[in-house]
Structures are given as C-alpha cells and as structure tokens.
C-alpha cells in the first residue's frame, strides 16, 4: 500500500513536470526569440531588471563569458557561488543572492538533450573546390 502511494506520488510529479516543460517550451517559442537586442552589449548577458545586480556581483573578478557559456540548475549555480565564496574571495551576496539565482536559473539553465550525441548544428556549408 505504502509503495503504491509512493508510486502515485512520483507519477504525479512526473506528469506535472512533463506539463510544465511543455508549457515552458511553448513560452520559449513565443517570447524566447534570442536577438542581439536581448543581450547586454558590454557583457553578452541577457537583459533583465536584475542585470546590473548580476554584473556588480559576478563580473568584478571573472568574465561574463563564464556565465553565458555555462548551463546549470539553480542548485548548481548556488553551489558554484558557495565555491567562489570559499575559494575565490567572493563576498556574501546577502539579499541579492536569491535575485542573482533567479536570473541565472531563468536564462542559464540546462537545455534538454535527446541523445548521447547531439546532431551536428550550425554547419557552415562551403564548396570544397580543390582537395589538398
């Protein structure tokens, strides 16, 4: 009986998670068109009300590229902040921390991947005229 309850508990989480991901994918299609205008020209970071807060806390020591090229869950971004605080002299973010994490979670979360090797993407086709 207990097992069955546990099973349905996880099943319901799974169903909710599937629905949520469908919704977020749809939203992505509508509003997620990434254009140059959605990026801060100085840093390449996504423009957002919390952008200046993120820049003030995150890019004093390291390049903004260390953010833009990474994809992590909120928990892993938080662990990374803790690691920087422990090892790299990062200060206590105080009240800013949840806002910084909101921002990172919103724009720099892992993307889903279907296979263990992705299809080749952004191939720049060219005519190979004379072989070496």
């Amino acid at each position: 009986m207990r097992l069955r309850i546990v099973f349905f508990y996880f099943l319901s989480i799974y169903v909710i998670a599937c629905k949520t991901s469908q919704i977020s994918e749809k939203n992505e299609e509508v509003e997620g068109q990434l254009t140059e205008n959605s990026l801060d020209p100085d840093s390449g970071l996504r423009i957002d009300p919390n952008l200046m807060l993120v820049k003030a806390n995150c890019t004093a020591c390291h390049s903004s590229k260390l953010i833009t090229m990474n994809r992590m869950s909120r928990e892993r971004w938080k662990e990374t902040i803790r690691w920087m605080q422990e090892k790299q002299n990062l200060w206590d973010l105080g009240e800013s921390e949840p806002l910084v994490l909101d921002y990172l979670e919103k724009y720099y979360a892992p993307e889903s991947q279907a296979t263990r090797r992705k299809n080749l993407e952004a191939i720049e086709w060219y005519e190979l005229k004379k072989q070496e």
Binding site: Y126, E127, Q131
Partner: peptide, 16 residues
C-alpha cells in the same frame, strides 16, 4: 583536421 566540417563535394565522390 582536413577538410573543415561542412565540405560540399561537386563533380567527385572521393574525399581525402
């Protein structure tokens, strides 16, 4: 390292 990815072959089926 050769060729660069994205090569289009025309007039031949051979590629080194």
């Amino acid at each position: 390292t050769y060729p660069k990815s994205g090569a289009i072959l025309k007039g031949t089926n051979k590629l080194k």
